[in-house]
Write a protein that binds this DNA or RNA. Structure first.
Length: 211
DNA sequence: GGAATGATAGTCT
DNA sequence: GACTATCATTCCG
């Protein structure tokens, strides 16, 4: 983390989710937590994402329509949609597209940048845990950054006051972006909507790509 | 290195 | 009452 990083503009999240998912690669996910010693920043670089469309995508939570759980997806872009899955894990999404449309991007993996020791402690793991086991996977990264539905669902990711932010620092990933089908779903499982930084260790699952 | 397995709870039908 | 956008562990090669 350095002083050069800045919040992304709201317009960044207006395009369809496949566009936003690709452009989010290389951006920074910043979590601000309060400790006995004051506030602490946990920072990871986004290395893997998946795009989910609104009512047109059978694999998306929003496919079934607007419910209490998915309400935040229809609200303005740039907000956190956090859900609880398989009885023990949280997953983080970023809402995109204009208000009234339910597209979102699932954050699947991070490369730790700052606060490694705290991340390991939050997951109950030893400080020497390899990066690939610390933040590689949607459930893992939520554990490492203390992201829960109760605490952060609906949070604005584009405010300096927010406990969870998405920032950029000029890092470029465009030239080395891999594409593959999405992971862990049964419907529309053949669409190439998963994006990742090619050659990055912290990418979860297959690192081969089709485009 | 890869496949199979079970833990566990919120959400929707 | 069924179904998950998962993970760690255990087994096998």
């Amino acid at each position: 983390m350095n002083e050069k990083s800045r919040l992304l503009p709201r317009e960044f999240f207006l395009p369809p989710p496949d566009i936003v998912a690709r452009e989010l690669l290389g951006k920074l996910l910043v979590r601000v937590i309060e400790t006995e010693a004051g506030s602490e920043r946990l920072v990871g670089r986004i290395v893997e994402t998946e795009a989910y469309f609104g009512v047109d995508d059978p694999a998306a939570h929003s496919f079934a329509g607007r419910t209490a759980r998915t309400e935040v997806l229809w609200r303005p872009p740039g907000h956190a949609y956090v859900y609880f899955i398989y009885g023990m894990h949280s997953c983080l999404n970023v809402s995109c597209e204009p208000e009234g449309t339910a597209g979102c991007v699932l954050i699947r993996a991070l490369a730790p940048v700052q606060g490694r020791a705290r991340m390991a402690a939050l997951r109950g793991l030893a400080p020497d845990i390899p990066d690939v086991r610390l933040t590689s996977g949607p459930g893992r990264l939520c554990g490492a950054l203390a992201i829960t539905r109760a605490g952060l669902n609906g949070a604005d990711l584009l405010s300096e006051q927010s406990e969870l932010q998405i920032r950029e620092d000029g890092w470029q990933a465009e030239a080395q972006c891999g594409v593959s089908p999405r992971i862990g779903i049964t419907k529309a499982a053949d669409r190439p909507l998963r994006f990742f930084v090619a050659g990055e260790r912290c990418v979860s699952g297959p690192r081969k790509f089709t485009a």
